[in-house]
């Protein structure tokens, strides 16, 4: 006894599974600025979609995703609301107008921003949840 080498590894069984993260974790890990939000921080994020064409988002994004875009006008709120997206992240430090923020508050849509480019942010988000 005692002569046999013993090796022990903790196998992470969750490794290959897609992680469902809460919105607040994503905001924290990606260092996002909250422009407006209500009580959605505990909501689970199902994934992400990156596009600046509104019809593309309408046609292809799915419920619970985070939408990454450079669009800042108020029509993005209607799209996020109709598609029940978990949040909009405006990238490159672009600032939405007052009317966009007002509409987001009224429609209860989470509006976030980041100084990074869509490519960099999408890459980091993908790494977090996949």
């Amino acid at each position: 006894m005692g002569n046999r080498p013993v090796s022990k590894i903790n196998v992470d069984t969750k490794q290959d599974k897609k992680r469902n993260m809460k919105l607040k974790e994503i905001i924290e890990k990606l260092n996002l600025t909250v422009i407006c939000a209500n009580d959605q921080f505990e909501n689970e994020v199902s994934g992400g979609y990156c596009s600046d064409l509104l019809s593309d988002v309408m046609g292809n994004a799915t419920e619970g995703q985070i939408w990454i875009t450079i669009q800042v006008h108020k029509n993005i709120i209607a799209v996020a609301s109709l598609k029940e997206l978990s949040a909009i992240v405006i990238v490159k430090g672009l600032e939405p107008g007052e009317d966009t923020i007002e509409t987001a508050k009224k429609e209860n849509i989470v509006l976030l921003s980041s100084n990074e480019t869509a490519f960099d942010l999408a890459g980091k988000l993908y790494g977090l949840i996949n």
Binding site: L54, S55, G59, N75, I76
Partner: peptide, 16 residues
């Protein structure tokens, strides 16, 4: 420039 007019409107209707 607002992100409309991508030529996806009518096809999106048809698909849905």
């Amino acid at each position: 420039q607002m992100g409309f007019g991508a030529g996806m409107g009518l096809p999106n209707m048809k698909k849905n």
